[in-house]
């Protein structure tokens, strides 16, 4: 019987080796990051995000055009220094800097979930910039492909009709809220099915969310953010109205004011 088991074990090892050798062509490597990093963070060397910054992403995405990425910031109460900015980078996307978030003052914890396009198997990384200049980095490897060129889910006429509409929902029990801006957020890499030409890039370039006078967060966005940009973020709520302002790369501005409890 032991011989019997040994043979099975041997075969399974062989099988595992075969699988591993086949997987090696998809090796997770950071060549691209070393090519682009100086353009993004200069010569600074980020520390490991550890407890201060983490990034959660699916290992394999169901739909490469809408991959949820969660960023979590935990400012230390003991240590000095706090996170003021988070840069979200998708190494293998042609426009690797997906978004830059600026955090409002006085936040000790901040979570943000957004949905992005992923063009090919890639590391997704977040770099937190502290007010004292230090950097922290967290990363995850995501298997997804074709997200930048995937055709839009909504047809152009429908997208235009609802352009700039917004929704603000509060999930008090979870301590967060969600903002959605209706915008096709065309990547510029999506082919028009009739002309076979690329639909020009058209996307939300700036977004700012305030409550009363206080900025909750602002963002500079790019073509890697999914259609109908959606942001889920930590939200306590002071009772003041919430103002959302957005602007796209064609200079169209959108502004809505919502009650603190959502609409």
């Amino acid at each position: 019987m032991t011989v019997h088991l040994r043979i099975i074990a041997f075969l399974w090892i062989g099988l595992a080796a075969l699988l591993l050798s086949r997987g090696s062509s998809f090796a997770q490597d950071e060549t691209t990051w070393f090519e682009i990093r100086s353009a993004i963070i200069g010569e600074s060397v980020p520390e490991d995000g550890a407890e201060r910054l983490s990034l959660v992403a699916p290992t394999r995405a169901e739909d490469a055009a809408i991959v949820p990425i969660e960023l979590r910031v935990r400012n230390s109460e003991k240590e000095a220094g706090r996170v003021t900015k988070i840069t979200l980078v998708i190494d293998e996307n042609p426009a690797p800097v997906a978004a830059v978030f600026h955090l409002g003052d006085g936040q000790t914890t901040f979570d943000m979930t957004i949905r992005v396009r992923i063009d090919s198997y890639t590391f997704v990384r977040a770099i937190a910039t502290m007010d004292d200049g230090r950097l922290y980095m967290a990363k995850a490897y995501v298997k997804a492909a074709g997200g930048c060129s995937a055709p839009a889910a909504k047809d152009p006429a429908e997208a235009k009709a609802n352009l700039g509409e917004m929704r603000f929902r509060v999930f008090a029990d979870r301590g967060d809220a969600q903002i959605q801006v209706r915008h096709p957020n065309y990547s510029g890499m999506q082919m028009d099915q009739i002309t076979r030409l690329y639909t020009p890039a058209w996307f939300i370039e700036k977004l700012e969310v305030r409550q009363g006078e206080k900025t909750l967060f602002s963002m500079e966005g790019g073509i890697s953010i999914s259609e109908d940009p959606t942001f889920r973020f930590s939200y306590g709520g002071t009772g003041d109205p919430v103002i959302v302002e957005a602007e796209d790369n064609e200079g169209r501005a959108f502004k809505r004011t919502f009650p603190a409890t959502g609409s």
């Binding site: 682009i36 993004i40 042609p94 426009a95 690797p96 800097v97 890499m189 020009p200 073509i223």
Partner: peptide, 14 residues
């Protein structure tokens, strides 16, 4: 991928 013509000049393209 071709860099979209109307992408802002400062956008990093790789």
């Amino acid at each position: 991928p071709e860099r979209p013509a109307n992408l802002p000049a400062e956008t990093l393209w790789h």
